[in-house]
């Protein structure tokens, strides 16, 4: 699913370079194993995904903060039929909402390492970063062993 092989408008992954986005630091942090997001310096709101202005107070003074790298499965399912272009080979993949540490944030993510039949609500998962084959990096979660 890389931009080298796919037209941009069929590429699910965000463009990461500062040439294309103002949240390039998110991806730089991710490459270092950190899951980060923006926090409003005026009202303290923590956003997901990262923003360039606070949707709560519209302030633009935002700081990068670390999110917990581990969490628990709040809900999950798997992708058996109807997978989009470029994901056809992923049939059976598990997806779920991960409740991050003690934050209010539940992130939707691909979950690797176990089959659907082997998992339960509340199972512990942790951040996993991976390389997209065109030099970009992205995140998903894996089961803790």
């Amino acid at each position: 699913m890389s931009s080298a092989t796919r037209p941009y408008l069929l590429d699910f992954y965000p463009l990461e370079d500062e040439k294309y986005t103002r949240i390039a630091p998110f991806f730089i942090h991710l490459r270092a194993g950190r899951l980060t997001t923006t926090k409003c310096e005026r009202d303290g709101s923590v956003h997901w995904p990262p923003r360039v202005a606070c949707p709560n107070c519209h302030g633009t003074q935002l700081a990068w903060v670390d999110l917990p790298r581990s969490g628990r499965l709040y809900a999950f399912s798997a992708l058996y039929l109807g997978l989009p272009l470029g994901m056809e080979q992923d049939a059976g993949a598990v997806v779920g909402l991960v409740e991050l540490g003690d934050t209010h944030i539940k992130i939707f993510s691909r979950i690797t390492g176990r089959k659907y039949e082997e998992i339960h609500i509340g199972d512990a998962v942790e951040l996993e970063t991976f390389d997209i084959d065109d030099g970009r990096v992205f995140y998903r979660f894996k089961f803790k062993v």
């Binding site: 965000p14 997978l83 993949a93 691909r110």
Partner: peptide, 9 residues
Amino acid sequence: AWDGVHGGT
């Protein structure tokens, strides 16, 4: 870019 990318349909 954040939900669909993981297979969120």
